[in-house]
Computed example of a mutant assay.
Amino acid sequence: MQRNRGLSAQAVTVLRALAVDPSRWRYGYDLATEVHLKSGSLYPILVRLADRGLLEATWEPGPDGRPPRHLYRLTGTGREYVAALPAAQSVRVAPHPKLRLGEAS
């Protein structure tokens, strides 16, 4: 069964970051730094976006015996999706500030 849920605010933020230069391949680490998401949040988003056909992914061999790295960029469908997003969905997602013990939320 296929679900047609809308994208999360974090997924939209990732798409918008990639849309700045849609033909450029980007590393997940660089995206994580730019959109302020931890890898445990970012990489599942990248997989879901690729599954929907909004991103393409490829492997780059690692230099000097290091492991290969994944690269991502928008597909034509991804570019169209971002172009059709309402301006209200352009909110950047920042991580929640950590509270010290004893502080009220």
Results as ranks from 00 to 15, higher is better:
residue 21 D to L: 12
residue 39 S to G: 14
residue 82 V to S: 13
residue 18 L to G: 03
residue 61 P to G: 03
residue 92 R to C: 10
residue 51 D to C: 08
residue 36 H to S: 15
residue 64 D to A: 14
residue 97 P to A: 02
residue 76 G to M: 13
residue 44 P to E: 05
residue 47 V to S: 15
residue 58 T to D: 11
residue 54 L to M: 07
residue 87 A to Y: 02
residue 28 G to H: 02
residue 5 R to W: 15
residue 23 S to W: 13
residue 99 L to H: 11
residue 66 R to V: 03
residue 84 A to F: 02
residue 73 R to V: 11
residue 34 E to T: 01
residue 92 R to P: 10
residue 98 K to N: 12
residue 21 D to Y: 10
residue 5 R to I: 07
residue 85 L to K: 07
residue 88 A to V: 11
residue 101 L to T: 15
residue 11 A to K: 10
residue 74 L to Q: 01
residue 2 Q to Y: 03
residue 6 G to E: 13
residue 50 A to R: 01
residue 53 G to V: 05
residue 82 V to R: 04
residue 7 L to F: 11
residue 61 P to I: 07
residue 99 L to T: 08
residue 42 L to E: 05
residue 34 E to Y: 12
residue 12 V to S: 03
residue 63 P to I: 09
residue 6 G to T: 10
residue 67 P to A: 05
residue 99 L to R: 14
residue 83 A to E: 04
residue 64 D to T: 01
residue 39 S to I: 00
residue 61 P to L: 00
residue 55 L to T: 10
residue 15 L to P: 09
residue 103 E to G: 01
residue 20 V to W: 02
residue 46 L to I: 11
residue 46 L to S: 00
residue 58 T to K: 15
residue 98 K to M: 13
residue 62 G to F: 06
residue 91 V to D: 01
residue 98 K to G: 12
residue 27 Y to L: 15
residue 65 G to R: 04
residue 57 A to N: 11
residue 54 L to K: 00
residue 3 R to G: 11
residue 23 S to G: 04
residue 83 A to N: 12
residue 43 Y to Q: 00
residue 20 V to D: 05
residue 25 W to F: 02
residue 49 L to N: 01
residue 68 P to L: 02
residue 9 A to P: 00
residue 82 V to K: 07
residue 17 A to P: 01
residue 100 R to C: 13
residue 92 R to K: 10
residue 82 V to F: 01
residue 84 A to S: 09
residue 84 A to D: 05
residue 23 S to V: 08
residue 45 I to K: 05
residue 90 S to F: 00
residue 25 W to T: 08
residue 38 K to D: 08
residue 40 G to F: 14
residue 80 E to Q: 14
residue 56 E to W: 02
residue 85 L to S: 07
residue 19 A to I: 09
residue 59 W to P: 01
residue 57 A to R: 08
residue 105 S to W: 08
residue 65 G to S: 06
residue 56 E to R: 06
residue 104 A to W: 07
residue 34 E to W: 14
residue 94 A to W: 07
residue 87 A to S: 12
residue 103 E to M: 13
residue 91 V to R: 11
residue 80 E to K: 12
residue 16 R to E: 10
residue 83 A to I: 05
residue 14 V to P: 05
residue 67 P to H: 05
residue 1 M to N: 07
residue 44 P to H: 00
residue 94 A to G: 12
residue 75 T to V: 03
residue 55 L to G: 05
residue 72 Y to W: 08
residue 22 P to E: 06
residue 50 A to K: 04
residue 69 R to I: 06
residue 49 L to Q: 06
residue 2 Q to E: 14
residue 54 L to G: 02
residue 16 R to F: 02
residue 57 A to C: 10
